[in-house]
């Protein structure tokens, strides 16, 4: 699934400044968690992380496991420093008003597997 589709399905806002073509990136898997150690333990390739956590370590954790995009759920928004950190690592941040369960459910139903 393209990140563009994820944005559409979650009715999400893009929080980092990216070229529009960045949304053509393919995401193969997703992981929904507020526990970063779980993300570090279980994530596979080319993933999307859905989380309600907004501290800079969410970006660092994502970088370590090659996550390409982070979707913040429940209307949460990271601070400027976290956005800049993500931008410097080419990680795309998006934000949705949807709750974790809804957001994961919609993406799974649309074919984004685990």
């Amino acid at each position: 699934m393209h990140l563009r589709d994820v944005v559409k399905i979650l009715d999400a806002e893009i929080l980092t400044e990216n070229d529009d073509s960045a949304l053509d990136i393919d995401v193969h898997t997703a992981c929904g968690s507020d526990m970063m150690s779980d993300v570090l333990a279980y994530v596979k390739d080319q993933g999307l992380l859905l989380t309600g956590l907004v501290n800079p370590q969410v970006v660092r954790t994502s970088e370590m496991v090659d996550i390409v995009a982070i979707a913040f759920v429940r209307g949460k928004r990271p601070d400027k420093m976290t956005v800049e950190l993500a931008q410097s690592k080419n990680i795309i941040l998006i934000g949705t008003q949807q709750k974790m369960y809804q957001a994961c459910g919609k993406l799974y139903a649309a074919g984004l597997g685990n």
Binding site: D34, M35, M36, S37, D38, L40, A41, N55, Q57, V58
Partner: peptide, 15 residues
């Protein structure tokens, strides 16, 4: 609350 402290750190490092 910051997303750590789940007791997975050392086991992950070993793994």
């Amino acid at each position: 609350e910051l997303g750590f402290g789940a007791g997975m750190g050392l086991p992950n490092m070993k793994k």
